[in-house]
Design a protein around this nucleic acid. Structure first.
Lengths: 234, 234
DNA sequence: GCGTGTAATATGTATGCACATATTGCGTCA
DNA sequence: TGACGCAATATGTGCATACATATTACACGC
């Protein structure tokens, strides 16, 4: 059989795992590897490119390809839509709109969205139920400058997240994760005791550099957990 | 100038952003796009492949290339080494080994590591300081079946994480994130009040399917936060 | 009508070749 | 001796072509 770029990739990876190549070492050049494996240089190139994309090696012209030392392991964090997350557990999903108003956002939110002082935004507060338990409390501000259509939507039936994904399919997202103690009001809405640990996600999204929305998503800490993995195959 | 795969990529992406292609739509075939852009099919192929890797489109043979609806937005979560994380803030990093012993792990840990009943593992408890504040409490079990060399290392100076990265450069990692209330003992070691929210990371790593270690990393919730972003450029 | 084999089709991969581009190092010339 | 420039080299990208493979649709036979 012909030599696949996967064969080359696996071979190099094997040398690193086996210790034949240690972090800092220079991998043989594409030409040399092509000769060794009996394949075209392009095939080796693809193998090395994928390894570079995976962060295993580092490539620079004229310098060659070197084995990276894995300083910080990155992992892929999947934050599913609330609905999907809940329905995956088998529980019934219910969405509830607590309040909806157009108002000038507090300074902290204004800064997070990069809005001009005095400008108004859409403020939504919602609750997401998993059966009889509250799964998530959502406090969201949407920039009307970026998404004017949001002023017309009433969000009584559809949650703002699902609405936004439909309205603006491609966006950049940032998630900040932290732990906190539930305040009085929060605890009451979540159905937990004040002081209980909550898992907080602060999500901000942009499209082409324009801020779309900032959402503070609060979950009961006892039940919620997020899982991130490194890409399995390599 | 010749047509770059980046041009094709940008063009398709533009159509999606502009609404010319909406989620569910089928992108024209590689042959058709190649004719349209005046380039080789391989060039179109590479553009589409990268878009598929980025999760923007979904490709299946014979079926064609379709625009994905972004159900779950993935983000890249970077969990830095404790040392790097602390030194980045300018605070002084200090590592402290609290205890070290070889013992049979509790059932929960044994299950997490996939160890046989009765087998022993290395148990380490450490504290990571950022200046005068405790940044992280580490409770770690290392499988001696997978990493026998760990039995010799004393971990008095070097933290187990740094040691393991050196010993096993390429591994698979899983992180589970959650919030909890600090227990009595934990709170005392962290220098916070019992009941205060803590941010917990449970990290498990494998190499070639063999479990290496399980670490429970506890941080004071008030100060700790993790940030994940989607890849910026696309 | 129904299952099945087969052709058509879209994507996936490999090759040889050519040229582009970045970087290093050495040699040339003032 | 030092500044500059050019050649050597390794990776990066594009094209034409060929063949591989998965999946769908359709024709065929029962």
């Amino acid at each position: 059989m012909r030599v696949s770029y996967l064969d080359v990739k696996a071979a190099i990876l094997g040398r690193i795992r086996g210790g034949a190549l240690v972090p800092g070492d220079t991998v043989p050049g594409e030409e040399a590897l092509a000769a060794e494996f009996g394949c075209a240089r392009v095939t080796v190139h693809r193998a090395l490119r994928e390894l570079a994309e995976a962060g295993v090696v580092e490539r620079r012209r004229r310098r060659g390809t070197r084995v990276r030392l894995p300083v910080a392991r990155d992992a892929e964090l999947v934050i599913p839509s609330v609905r999907a997350e809940i329905e995956a557990t088998g529980a019934a999903y219910r969405y509830e709109l607590l309040s909806r108003r157009i108002a000038p956002p507090p300074r902290r939110v204004r800064a997070a969205l990069g809005l001009a002082p005095g400008s108004k935004a859409l403020h939504l507060r919602c609750r997401h139920w998993a059966g009889a338990r509250v799964h998530q409390l959502e406090d969201r501000w949407i920039s009307l400058a970026t998404v004017p259509a949001a002023a017309q939507a009433d969000f009584a039936q559809t949650g703002p997240n699902e609405w936004l994904i439909r309205a603006m399919p491609l966006s950049q997202v940032e998630h900040a994760l932290s732990a906190a103690n539930a305040g009085e009001a929060e605890a009451a809405l979540l159905g937990i005791a004040p002081g209980d640990a909550v898992f907080v996600i602060e999500r901000r999204t942009w499209i082409e550099g324009e801020a779309i929305t900032r959402a503070r998503l609060v979950h009961p800490g006892a039940t919620h957990r997020l899982v991130a993995r490194t890409a399995p195959p390599l």
